[in-house]
């Protein structure tokens, strides 16, 4: 019998390992060796990532580094595009969403994805929010009304639209549309919220509102936000993932990454040496 600890002092002892495991955040969403190719081009390279539960994780990185592609992979939105090839695993709980026989709508219900460009459905404001609940079988008007009201209040849109719930949603301003899309996504009651620059079209006041909302929502949901605003990431994130050219360069608790980035690229990005 050889005692590992004595042979190689570099390797952590069982006790040390235990403390490492304990300090690791609990995660219900794990990305393992994810590679994505679009038109044969290697877009995402060996992504390994555990999204901490009931925390806000911000994904940052320069434009074109693959943030949107990563979020879409978590929702299997690449499925219909024949030019996109996805390799690797994404575990939700202990279910690999890329395994065979997985029902994709069931996965997507768990992931509330907010697209980079807000896209309202061609129907009334009310029906937009009620669309998801209706899909999942809620028919009673009263119940639907409650859901719609609750979610619109949650995104701070209720006061602005309560008198015109029947009007087409396209008549809303872009900022309002983005909040509507948020409410629509929340109405499905997902487990995770994946926001692709969810506040990019909003004025500072609405942005603050939405940020506050995310801070409340993280009590119930695990949230992943792509953001270009470092200050926003600083304000609301618990964890930071920094991506560069399709690779995950650094991942860690937000205060650590911001105060003491381990990787040179991260430091340069945070300093604004490149964008």
């Amino acid at each position: 019998m050889i005692d590992i600890a004595t042979v190689s002092p570099e390797k952590p002892s069982i006790k040390q390992k235990m403390t490492i495991v304990q300090s690791l955040p609990v995660s219900n969403l794990k990305v393992i060796d994810l590679n994505v190719y679009i038109h044969g081009k290697h877009i995402l390279k060996d992504i390994n990532l555990s999204i901490p539960e009931k925390k806000i994780t911000c994904i940052i990185g320069p434009s074109g580094c693959g943030k949107t592609t990563l979020l879409r992979s978590l929702n299997r939105l690449h499925d219909d595009a024949s030019e996109v090839k996805v390799e690797g695993q994404v575990y939700v709980g202990d279910e690999d969403i890329y395994a065979k026989n997985v029902e994709v709508t069931h996965i997507r219900k768990k992931m509330g994805l907010l697209a980079q460009r807000p896209t309202v459905l061609p129907m009334s404001i009310f029906d937009n929010v009620a669309y998801g609940p209706r899909l999942y079988g809620i028919r009673r008007r009263r119940k639907l009304y409650e859901i719609v009201k609750h979610q619109l209040q949650a995104v701070g849109l209720w006061e602005e639209v309560k008198d015109r719930l029947k009007t087409p949603a396209v008549r809303l301003s872009i900022g309002q549309q983005q909040r509507l899309c948020l409410a629509r996504g929340l109405a499905v009651e997902p487990e995770f919220i994946l926001g692709d620059e969810a506040t990019s079209a909003l004025d500072p006041l609405s942005t603050t509102k939405i940020e506050e909302m995310f801070l409340t929502l993280k009590e119930k949901y695990s949230i992943v936000l792509v953001t270009h605003t470092l200050r926003q990431a600083k304000r609301i994130s618990d964890y930071i993932a920094f991506m560069y050219l399709g690779q995950l360069i650094e991942f860690g608790p937000s205060n650590e990454v911001f105060s003491n980035p381990k990787h040179k690229l991260t430091r340069e990005y945070l300093d604004g040496s490149f964008s």
Binding site: N75, L77, T105, H106, R108, K109, M111, G112, L113, A115, R117, T119, V120, L121, P122, M123, Y131, G132, L135, Y136, C181, R184, G185, V188
Partner: peptide, 26 residues
């Protein structure tokens, strides 16, 4: 019909048939 609309519907968990229903209205 924008791809964004189709993806918005799919991310809400709509099946192909349910997606087509909205598209027909559109």
């Amino acid at each position: 019909v924008p791809q964004d609309l189709i993806e918005a519907l799919k991310s809400l968990g709509a099946t192909q048939y349910e997606t087509l229903k909205v598209i027909v209205r559109q």
